[in-house]
Amino acid sequence: MQSTLTNEGLVAARSLSRTSLLAHLRAFWAVTWREWYHFVRYPTWVIAFVIWPILFPAMYIMGAFSLAGPQGTGITRFTEVTGTANYLGYIVVGTTVWMWANTMLWNTGLVLREERMRGTLESNWMSPTSRFFFVLGAGPVHAATMLMFVFATVVEFRLFFGTQFNANLGTLLVVALCSMPALYGLGFSFASLVITAREANTFVFLIRGLVMIFCGITYPLSVMPAWMQSVSTWLPPTIIIRAARAAALNNAPLSSLTSDLTLLLIHGAVWLSLGYILFTLIERSARRKGSLGSY
């Protein structure tokens, strides 16, 4: 049978199944472009970009204003436990970093979920490209949009609340870069959950909420019970928020955050490996059961 094939036929057959790193990178690039087109095609994101950076922290900020009191009596206690009287900056950095880390964490899983809802997951999965690169493709666009989001947050809080930042931008950038492997790793683990559980919304919400409680977005960890403090030290978002606060409010140099950054990189190595293994195993199992496209 093989002898009847022409040379052209053989080349074509081989090119379809012959995946290389370059082919994977091309697929990754194509997914990135698709995500970008998808993003600019629905301009309602502008509303979200203008409103949410200020709306989400506003609930906590107004709460903090009321707790501080008309004469600022509550600020003394806050300064004692946090080491800063700039409670507005403390909350803004905490909530903004949480929103960023939160979307980084769940984005991978949500991309898969959207694909499944649109009915394109199965056909994309059949293409001879690495699933890992396929899922990773949404990352760059997401990172770019989140950068715009953070920029909008800073501008809006400077304008409307006169929030003071004393930021070391270089350190802040390194913190963000060192955070990514851990967040992507956790994101892959979550993506495995999306493949396994068809309706994961409630579960996702609870996990998301629990992470928000433990990582101290608007308060220092010292106000939590000891057992909660022990749990929170193991969560990458806790370390990210702590490091980002130091960089954005205290102009912390890179050298002062070495231990946090090392911890983040260790988390990154562990979670990325674990996430990759978990994702590969569960994806293979879903393919075997034929449950990829069902929801």
Partner: peptide, 13 residues
């Protein structure tokens, strides 16, 4: 879940 962070923030003040 939303109340818990509000509670801890209250504790900080």
């Amino acid at each position: 879940v939303w109340l818990a962070p509000v509670y801890f923030m209250g504790q900080a003040f």
